[in-house]
Simulated assay, not measured.
Amino acid sequence: MAKNGKVQLHPSKNPLSENIRGAMVELLQKHLASAIDLSYQCKQAHWNVKGMNFIAVHKLFDELHEQTEGYVDLIAERLTALGGQAHGTVQASNEGTLLTPYPLDLVHSEGHLKRLADSFSEMGGHVEKAVEESEEAGDPLTADLFTQIGRGLDESLYFLESHFQLPDVSGQTGR
């Protein structure tokens, strides 16, 4: 933020209007903070997981971290391409994240799997809203970026939830 509560933009020949670029930079900044948070939630789980299937979930959490780091980079690069200044520090992420804080006392693999599923679901909901907001603002490229991220989040959620979605005796899916 800068003058008159408006986002300060670097000069750019990007064809979007300054108003649209400013709005998208603000939107992208919230999601940059959230993607950094999600990335390190995955690392928190990776570093601290214990229990059955340790090596499989340990590796899964590291893969999810790498995937979300990719989202961080995509979001930051789009934000700066629009003339914004990416705020990508841990402190900025902490101040701007849209996600519920990750508990620091989880140990068991099932607890981490379920809590990360909650976080990926929460992030996915925010990303879906960002797709709509980007489209309504007239920025199809940012909407496409959020759509791409949303697809990846959905797939990750599937990988996480598959660990605890087991059919019961009647054939119904239970948690």
Rank of each mutant, 00 (worst) to 15 (best):
I55A: 08
A23S: 10
E95D: 06
N19T: 12
D118Y: 14
E69V: 09
F54T: 03
F164D: 11
H46W: 03
V49Y: 02
T68I: 09
K50F: 09
A143C: 09
D37Y: 03
H112Q: 02
V127F: 06
L106A: 00
G96L: 00
S134N: 07
D105S: 04
R78S: 14
H10S: 13
G125T: 05
L16D: 04
R175A: 14
A76V: 05
E161V: 15
E155M: 12
S39T: 07
S109M: 12
M1T: 13
Y158G: 10
R151V: 05
S12K: 00
V49E: 01
I55F: 09
Q165P: 14
H10V: 07
G84S: 02
C42I: 14
K13I: 08
A92S: 15
K30P: 04
D37A: 12
G84L: 01
L28F: 00
I20H: 08
E63Q: 15
V72L: 02
D62Q: 13
E161S: 12
H58L: 04
E66A: 12
Y71S: 01
L153C: 03
V90P: 11
G83I: 00
F164E: 08
G96I: 04
K50E: 11
E77D: 03
D118V: 14
V72T: 10
S34W: 01
A35Q: 03
L16I: 02
H10N: 13
L74K: 14
T89E: 07
K129H: 14
E63N: 15
Q67W: 09
V127N: 01
S12T: 11
L141M: 11
S134M: 07
D139Y: 06
R115I: 07
D105P: 05
D168E: 07
S17Q: 03
L64D: 06
V90A: 14
P140K: 08
L160H: 13
M123C: 03
A130Q: 04
S134I: 12
I75G: 05
E110L: 01
Q8E: 10
L16A: 05
G125A: 07
H108L: 12
V90N: 13
R175V: 15
T89A: 05
